[in-house]
Each structure stands twice: as C-alpha cells, then as structure tokens.
Design a protein around this nucleic acid. Structure first.
Length: 229
DNA sequence: CGCATTTGACCCGCGC
DNA sequence: GCGCGGGTCAAATGCG
C-alpha cells in the first residue's frame, strides 16, 4: 500500500527532545498541520490527510467544517506545539490543544468535566533495525473524558488488556469488527492525569463508519461534540 | 444461544 | 543468550 510506504520510507528519527511552540491556528487546522509538516518530515502528507479524515470522522463533521469549527471556536491562546523525543517515544508527534475546548461557555458546573482538551498526534514508527516490518500509520487523540472509549463511528471489539509499566491504568486493545478491516486502536489513561484518555489508532478503515450512533452511544458522541463548540 | 469481554498464556522485539 | 515488556491469542466467562 502506498500509504504505508510513505510512512515507512521516511526514516528521520528525532534525535533529541524538542518543543516547538506554534502560532495560533488562525490559518486553520489543515494549514496548521501542513506547517507542522514543514518543520518535521515525520508528518507526511498522508499523515496529515489521515489525521484530518479521522478527526472529522470522530466528531462527525465534514472536513471543511472541521477547520472552521476549530478556527471559529478559537479566540486567542490556542497552543499548537510539536514535541519530539526519541527517549520517551520513537515516534514523532504533534499536538494541538485548543483553548476553547477547555473552558468553553457552559453555564452549568465549572468542575473538571467542563475542561476538555483535544490532542491530535500523527505518528510513525521508526524503521525496524535490519528488517522491514511494515507498520500501519498510527495516530492518536488525547482527550479529557471520563469515558474510556470515545465513539468514533466505528464498531470495535476488545481483544486484550494490559497493565503497562509505570502506569496504574491498564491499556485496552480494540480491533475494528468489520471484516477485512485491520484497523486497531489502543486506549489508555495518562499516568499523570487519569482524566486524560489517549486513544491511538493504527491503520486505515477500508469502509465507512457504521451509523448506528443514535442509540446507546449518544452520550459518547455528545462528549466529542462538546470539544468543538 | 450467540456475541462481547476478560484474562492468563504465549510470542517476539529489544536492551543489557 | 537472557530477561523484560508490549502486543496478541484464545479459552473461559458474562450478558442480553
């Protein structure tokens, strides 16, 4: 698959920890990602495209709306930054955090549940030493939520759970239930802040999302919707 | 009864 | 070569 190839062929592995502050997303989500990719070759155009599509799917909005939502919801103070490390993680990743997503107007309670973060990371694995192990493109969201599994429109089946070292929360492994679709995702909670959920997707869906969202999963999609306005 | 989840075992890559 | 740790498998169990 050509997508995998382009992820694979980029062999630039970050060598030190860098933290590059990024200007507000006045230019929009897509352009911001493009700009990030100019800084780091780790974000290929496929990664950007993948990120955008996936995020749009997750929030159930067309890609065009996604950009305007993020920009429109903006105001000042979004932080768009790039964190690169080989020590902690051999993957390069970019993260976007919109201010609006945390404190947005919400007359109700002002407890933690009104503070939402949405992070987006497009990541690739470093090339296996000696051998070519093809890895699907990966991508992770960081969200603040009290539910572990955010509804992204696809059906997932859990196939494993593991307690990873130095974390008190188990990591869960899910696979897309669709035949011939090899997409997987991992869900874990941040050790430093258990309210933060890291969802890592691996691979691309070969089908469109199942649209049975309007029954029991309503609450989940509502959480996602809350991120954007 | 069928399907999803749980959970311990197993596999494999990597660092020492 | 060995041990560790992350990822996956699959039998057992739970649930609707």
């Amino acid at each position: 698959m050509s997508t995998n190839q382009s992820f694979e062929e980029q062999d630039q592995i970050p060598t030190q920890m860098e933290f590059i502050p990024f200007p507000p997303m006045a230019m929009g989500f897509h352009q911001s990602l493009k700009a990030i990719s100019a800084i780091t070759p780790s974000l290929s155009s496929e990664a950007i495209d993948f990120a955008e599509t996936l995020l749009a799917t997750a929030v159930q909005k067309p890609r065009e709306d996604l950009t305007s939502s993020l920009v429109g919801a903006g105001g000042g103070g979004q932080q768009f930054s790039l964190n690169r490390s080989r020590v902690i993680n051999p993957w390069a990743w970019g993260e976007v955090t919109a201010d609006c997503l945390m404190g947005k107007r919400n007359g109700g309670g002002d407890d933690d549940h009104d503070h939402h973060h949405l992070g987006v990371s497009a990541i690739k694995m470093k090339k296996m030493k000696g051998r070519r192990k093809v890895r699907e493109p990966r991508f992770c969201f960081k969200t603040m939520s009290d539910v572990d599994v955010l509804d992204d429109g696809y059906k997932w089946r859990k196939y494993g759970q593991k307690v990873v070292k130095n974390t008190q929360h188990p990591r869960s492994y899910y696979r897309c239930t669709q035949d011939n679709c090899r997409v997987k995702k991992r869900v874990e909670r941040l050790a430093e802040d258990p309210r933060m959920v890291i969802t890592t997707y691996e691979g691309r869906h070969v089908h469109s999302p199942s649209n049975d969202l309007d029954d029991s999963d309503q609450s989940h999609s509502q959480i996602l919707n809350n991120f954007l306005w």
